[in-house]
């Protein structure tokens, strides 16, 4: 569906996207994971055929977005990071008018709009102005709007940024449904849990480059250990204690607020720490996540 080769976008001397390669297959949920400013949104806009690339090759559904923008966009659904709904219009009108942009008939849209309102569970908000919706509802409406042309690819840029946990789960649930229906999803996020939940395969981006590629499980297997022990000795003492913990587990990361020890068996490591005579203020044994993969690859956390 999407093939990028040495895809590049420069602004003056700044390389926002630096010669990246990736492919997205039909029906796949593909993620771009990375911190803010990694080049995810820029990549998305090039895929969305609204931003011209500076170099490399890009094919969407077999065509070049630089020359076939409208054709490609006719098959895309776009959910931008910033909601750009019409606040003066009602919920149903936002969907209806967006469908009209594609030239879809009023008759078709009448049914489609009701279907989509049901899909994103906004039935009781149908005749309400967008201004009166919560952040989560607006985001759901934007997703519904992106589906009005029955797209081949639905692109979501930071779909749950700024939403509360409950609203995120409602949204994830809807995206799972779409995935089950065979819609290809392309998602950017800086939330590792979101990437783990939604993506079949992802690329980890930083500073315009791809740091790693694979399924969440593969990435964790390749770049991290099975478990992680997080211990805190207080911000002043972490660096002091860290050298004494060397040799425990496979690898140690010292962050300002905590020490992470990567190991196959976390409980065992925690036990070893206490037998060495160190008493952490708090301790936690958890499974490795993509956050750890990112830390390993870049030396930084995702929210840095």
């Amino acid at each position: 569906m999407i093939v990028a080769k040495a895809l590049t976008k420069t602004y003056g001397d700044f390389k926002a996207v630096d010669a990246i390669d990736f492919k997205v297959k039909r029906g796949e949920a593909f993620g771009l994971l990375g911190p803010n400013g990694a080049g995810k949104s820029t990549t998305m806009r090039m895929i969305g055929a609204t931003l011209q690339r500076s170099g490399g090759d890009l094919q969407i559904l077999g065509k070049d977005p630089n020359t076939h923008g409208p054709e490609i966009r006719a098959h895309l659904g776009v959910v931008p990071q910033q909601d750009n709904l019409d606040r003066e219009l009602k919920v149903w009108e936002n969907l209806f008018i967006y469908g009209r942009y594609f030239g879809l008939s009023r008759k078709f849209l009448k049914a489609k709009v009701e279907e989509l309102i049901g899909f994103v569970k906004l039935e009781d908000k149908r005749d309400v102005k967008v201004d009166a919706l919560s952040g989560g509802m607006k985001r759901r409406l934007t997703i519904a709007r992106g589906l009005v042309n029955e797209p081949e690819i639905l692109m979501l840029d930071e779909p749950t940024t700024g939403l509360d946990p409950q609203a995120r789960h409602v949204l994830w649930d809807r995206l799972f449904r779409l995935k089950e229906q065979g819609v290809t999803l392309v998602i950017t996020t800086h939330y590792m849990d979101e990437a783990e939940q939604l993506c079949d395969r992802l690329i980890v981006m930083d500073k315009g480059k791809i740091m790693a590629e694979g399924s969440p499980a593969e990435l964790i297997r390749d770049y991290s250990s099975r478990e992680v022990v997080e211990v805190r000795f207080g911000s002043a003492k972490n660096a002091e204690v860290a050298p004494h913990l060397e040799g425990l587990g496979e690898r140690i990361e010292v962050l300002p607020d905590r020490i992470l020890i990567y190991a196959e068996n976390g409980e065992q490591v925690l036990h070893q720490i206490t037998t060495k005579g160190f008493e952490p203020l708090t301790s936690l044994v958890r499974r490795s996540s993509l956050e750890d993969v990112f830390l390993r690859l870049t030396g930084r956390t995702l929210v840095d």
Binding site: E71, R73, A74, V78, P80, N84, L85, R87, Y101, G103
Partner: peptide
């Protein structure tokens, strides 16, 4: 303000 022109531009409109 609402950036609706960008929403239009994401469709097949030019």
């Amino acid at each position: 303000w609402t950036r609706f022109l960008f929403a239009m531009n994401a469709t097949s409109l030019t």
